[in-house]
Design a protein around this nucleic acid. Structure first.
Lengths: 293, 293
DNA sequence: CTCGATTCAGAATAAATTTTCCACTATTGC
DNA sequence: GCAATAGTGGAAAATTTATTCTGAATCGAG
């Protein structure tokens, strides 16, 4: 009976103190939003003013200081603090963290789906899966922001008119390389996978030339032999398309076109989901460019 | 002549003071990004470290405090300030405001992109990328529904106690297999990739036995040699974990555990994003199970 | 109207974050 | 190999920012 009793006690206090105190402030944005909406009409004038401003400009709520927001909303700084406290937070900062989390994590359509996935999480290993799904989905969605359309177009054009397409990726990047080799081969591109079997990558790439394009996939920590081979290819006049996780990759320096993929990481591990999506898109876009022109 | 004169003056000051002072720090993100990139190589070690972290995690730069970022980048708080000043800003706060503005403004652009995905189906390369992002993200999110938690748990348990883990995947499934081999190897599992080099998969799997587990990845159209090898392993008493796109896969019949991945397809092509996410989650979940028990 | 309670603005205080400073270390040019 | 110079880490100082507090204003009930 303890918990229930506790609940009712809190509830009655909450009614007595009107909207001044609350036991459990919302931790996610949607809950916060509905709570503000529900209370808005019962709020004192200035607090209502803040409430309105908060929902109208969530970005500013996440990024601005109390003073700036107070000015923008036409109230005193202290009003912001009281607003936060009236929702049950300890202060403005705690409220703001909810807006910030929202700004970091928001992405369209999939939010609801993922929330549902989260709720249903049961046993231990399955929870790990859920977290990976979450991370991978975010990485994929982020692709749209990190890839510069012009660069992607340029990469497709380079591939479409290449005499040969050489593909290089070692260790963690190898799965991507092998997939590209498969997809490009299927699409009838002259694709050559530099798999370094028998340490013969240099031999495999021996005849690379100015009419050719090399797709180099490389992630931190960068494999030295990948960098060497990229320099070799660049020296022979081949165009380089770099797929990396950072613009500071040594491979980027030599590249004609740079495609940066930021995979969200979970602990020490990074998925390849976003990179695979990019690889596939690149293969098909190149085929379309080639067949159109 | 005024502007040119001005330029040279700035330039000479800049050379004299090395990278310590600048007249006009970038006010928009793109300019800042290129400036950091251009200077990165000439920067002192710690500043370069900060530069890298800044471009690799722009969101954190926008939302975190100096202390948090310093910790994440592995430097002292003061280094962040010096970094900002070396770019011409008065301090860190001024630099951060550029990152914040970027975070605020990127949103409409993204929404526009997705809207474009939905109605248009043109062949422009960047548009193809958008559609793939959409498709891949959906596939990944769907994983949470198609994978049965119990099966995933069972797979983790099988891997955790396997004497050897054999991994088999050909053609389109090969990238997944090679990634699993990499990840499991890194996690200190006794992983053996049956890559079928020189058509020697049967030799590679020759010593498989009842204490071993075989992960078989297979998609329609199923590669006959994969099916043969799975039957061989099953005959020798090995446990089979099947990762497939359909429960009717011939590989499923022999399997102890079945993990079904339904990749949303775009035209005739299917991405591997969801499968890669599953592979990674499986590897790490298995490691957790092993280390817990 | 007037009492009582609630809400508010602004100053005062407290907390946090940023910035500066300086001794020490590494690097570079001679 | 040795100065001179530049870079670094750590902690103290300064600044910014959030929070609390108090008296005044407003509102509503009787």
């Amino acid at each position: 009976m303890q918990p229930l009793d506790h609940f009712w006690k809190i509830h009655s206090i909450s009614l007595m103190d009107d909207v001044t105190q609350d036991a459990e402030p919302p931790r996610d944005f949607e809950a916060l939003r509905s709570k503000i909406l529900a209370r808005h009409d019962a709020m004192p004038k200035r607090l209502a003013q803040v409430a309105r401003h908060a929902l109208d400009h969530p970005d500013r709520m996440a990024l601005s200081t109390v003073a700036e927001l107070a000015e923008a909303a036409g109230v005193q700084p202290s009003t912001l603090v009281r607003f936060a406290q009236s929702l049950g937070y300890s202060g403005f900062s705690e409220l703001q963290s909810v807006f910030r989390a929202q700004l970091r994590d928001r992405w369209p359509d999939y939010r609801e789906r993922l929330a549902r996935v989260k709720d249903e999480s049961g046993a231990e290993p399955a929870r790990i899966l859920d977290r990976f799904i979450d991370t991978a989905a975010r990485s994929v969605a982020d692709l749209g922001r990190t890839i510069i359309p012009g660069e992607f177009d340029a990469a497709s054009a380079l591939l479409a008119r290449a005499a040969h397409v050489y593909i290089l990726g070692q260790r963690r990047a190898f799965p991507v390389a092998s997939y590209l080799a498969y997809a490009l081969g299927k699409l009838d591109f002259p694709a050559i996978l530099l798999d370094n079997i028998g340490s013969m990558a240099d031999v495999q790439a021996g005849r690379i030339g100015p009419a050719d394009t090399l797709i180099a996939i490389s992630f931190n920590p960068y494999t030295p032999s990948t960098i060497d081979l990229v320099r070799f290819a660049a020296g022979r006049g081949a165009a380089i398309i770099a797929i990396t996780d950072s613009v500071f990759s040594p491979v980027s320096a030599e590249a004609r076109v740079r495609l940066e993929v930021i995979e969200a990481d979970l602990g020490a591990f990074r998925s390849l989901s976003a990179t695979m999506a990019l690889a596939m898109a690149l293969a098909i876009a190149s085929a379309e460019v080639r067949d159109a022109g």
